[in-house]
Design a protein around this nucleic acid. Sequence first.
DNA 1: GTAGTGACATGGC
DNA 2: TGCCATGCCACTA
Length: 109
Amino acid sequence: MKSETLSFFDKVFEVARLVPHGRVTSYGAIAKYLGATRSARMVGYALNGSDGKDVPAHRVVNRKGLLTGKHHFDGTNLMQQLLESEGIKVKDNQIQDFRNVFWDPSKEL
DNA sequence: GTAGTGACATGGC
DNA sequence: TGCCATGCCACTA
């Protein structure tokens, strides 16, 4: 099932793919880049369908650097493993040096 | 067209 | 960024 509707979701996937390796971004940052700062929730909802789209959803966390979506990845520490594998330090579902690895599309792009 | 839902954000204490 | 309450926008049924 492929909805070629170019909806808000697809845009989220595009930005998520643009996230550099070893960097992370927040739902609000993506939403803001898309012009929908208030729709940060939709960003996470969109990533829910990122499975199979080569979208590094594990690089997308909430504003606090907390791995809120790890439950949707595997249900365990898969998300944390992926982040650590890229050089990102994660402690108790929370990204350390979040400011340091944070990547803002609206600024970098 | 209405109602329900959601991987968040922000303001206040 | 400690916790609670409210708002918001887009999507699905």
